[in-house]
Design a binder for these strands. Sequence first.
DNA 1: CTTTAGGCCTGACGGC
DNA 2: TGCCGTCAGGCCTAAA
Length: 271
Amino acid sequence: MPELPEVETTRRGLSPLLEGQTIERLEVRDGRLRWPVPEALPERLVGARIATLERRAKYLLLTTDRGGVLLHLGMSGSLRHCTATTPLRTHDHLILHLTNGSQVRFHDPRRFGCCLPLPETGAPHPLLAALGPEPLDTAFDGDYLFQRSRRRRGPVKTFIMDQDIVVGVGNIYATEALFLAGIRPGRAAGRVTRAEYERLAECVRTVLGAAIEQGGTTLRDFLREDGTHGYFRQSLRVYGRAGEPCLQCATPLRNRRIGQRASAYCPTCQR
DNA sequence: CTTTAGGCCTGACGGC
DNA sequence: TGCCGTCAGGCCTAAA
């Protein structure tokens, strides 16, 4: 699932291949994504020179001299750099043709992703307006989490997956970070202590950083820009391992549904 | 304000 | 073999 490490992996792979290149055309093969791809988007991008490929939260921002584009990979999306001879796959919905002959394909079986123009005014896109801090920035720490969590009665796992609190942490990395920090996912966010939040913030940074270094996690759909998969899956300690022994204490890992999402944890190591 | 549930969408999987 | 229900989940929206 594309969470922050997968999006960042994609950005790092694609940015040197895109920056400075010129767009020949954007081919919309199926524009029915999370929101429909606006009809006017392709014509606006013809001949545009790509300036940067940036990331904010789980969004990618492509900037050009003819306006920007906001991309989200949803939960099954990926971007792949290839040539015209690379065989088309089912669910290759968008193709960005570059004048150098290469192309970038937006592949998304579940179509939860999006491709939208950025406001021409330069104002931040409404989807980005309320987002919390980047977890790898200095504004994110235990003190921040502690302050924001007071009087919140919902589960701490839901709390750190809230994009208004901190961005980029989805089900996989929330599950892993809580295990590393020794905190049960179902604890009320407002009852988690300052010291525990210090640990949790550090564990979120550690797990995201390690996942980025390994090119993200490939469960089913996610592929890097060159078509290879990420390697962090083999580093997962609890996610997807319910019923199997804890790697620290051998207690069978449990599974609970929290906020409509599967949540594996160790009843011994996590309190 | 916070919290919860529903919906979008396809593919994989288990049961019969 | 095929059909069907369930699950996966990011994140918006509406409602409690």
